[in-house]
């Protein structure tokens, strides 16, 4: 069974068609990259899949459960998916320790007392911090973390409870090259050991070529999809991006007229 099924998805953002008739599936334990130029509707697509913004038409199924029109999903399905944002803008303002934050990832959805879970919660947090190499960071405040540390703590937040689907928004944003490398190898290991299915919005086509099984190229509509070596060929990329701002390799050839997009 596919972990995520999207069929004929159409999303309006501020009255403009942002996602048009998009269909795809994510097989269990696959790693899929969502690529496309700025304004291509990547965040609208992710928002609609998670039930954060309404959809005009189409169906979304997560773990076989249909996403309601206002983003309703059974609590046990919600507990098995997580969204990793690019950054936490208020990270510096909250006097919140890493261990407390990761503990909130363990709590199942719905109202509960903050001390519920007791020992089980504590040992889950401890194990999650150890798995992500955040062991020494438990008592640090979120505000005291570097960019790379914060990303690892976000992975600890995901790994603290068994999950099936992870959606990442530009995981490499704001990271230097070594931290990006480290993050992706950690994500790769955890995906294998935890059985995660990953959908990641990305601008880093090199990383996508190296580590993803499937690519979805979005520019309002799904322009191409498939294995990275096919979907990210020069010809496909020129259909997707304006050739002047192709994000990275393969080495640029002489542009042969501007392909029209959209």
């Amino acid at each position: 069974m596919a972990v995520l099924e999207v069929e004929g998805l159409r999303v309006l953002r501020d009255g403009v068609l942002a996602v048009d008739d998009v269909s795809f599936q994510l097989a269990a334990e696959s790693d899929t990259a969502l690529v496309g130029p700025n304004g291509a509707g990547k965040s609208s697509l992710v928002g609609a899949i998670l039930g954060l913004i309404p959809r005009q038409a189409g169906e979304v199924r997560i773990l076989g459960h249909r996403l309601g029109p206002a983003g309703q999903l059974p609590a046990q399905v919600r507990a098995q998916l997580a969204f990793l944002p690019q950054a936490l803008p208020l990270q510096g303002r909250l006097p919140l320790t890493v261990a407390e934050f990761v503990g909130f990832g363990w709590d199942p959805p719905g109202p509960r007392l903050p001390w519920g879970g007791g020992g089980a919660r504590r040992s889950a947090v401890h194990a999650a911090l150890a798995k992500t190499g955040c062991g020494p960071l438990g008592e640090r405040l979120l505000s005291e973390l570097s960019g790379g540390q914060l990303k690892r703590v976000l992975l600890a937040f995901c790994v603290v409870r068994p999950r099936r689907l992870l959606v990442l928004d530009e995981a490499q944003a704001g990271l230097d090259a070594p931290s990006t490398e480290q993050f992706h190898s950690l994500l790769f290991d955890l995906r294998r050991s935890e059985g995660w299915t990953v959908l990641q919005v990305s601008h880093d086509l090199d990383m996508v070529r190296r580590s993803c099984d499937q690519v979805l190229c979005l520019n309002r509509q799904l322009r191409c999809s498939g294995r990275p070596e096919l979907a990210l060929s020069r010809a496909q990329l020129e259909r997707l991006y304006d050739p002047a701002d192709l994000p990275s390799h393969p080495p640029r050839q002489a542009p042969m007229g501007r392909p029209r997009i959209g």
Partner: peptide
Amino acid sequence: LLVSLRAQVLVTLHADLAGAFGV
């Protein structure tokens, strides 16, 4: 606030991160 502490903190940190958890 006690019963919804997790929701309050997550909403304050990042609305979409909280929303993905159904908050």
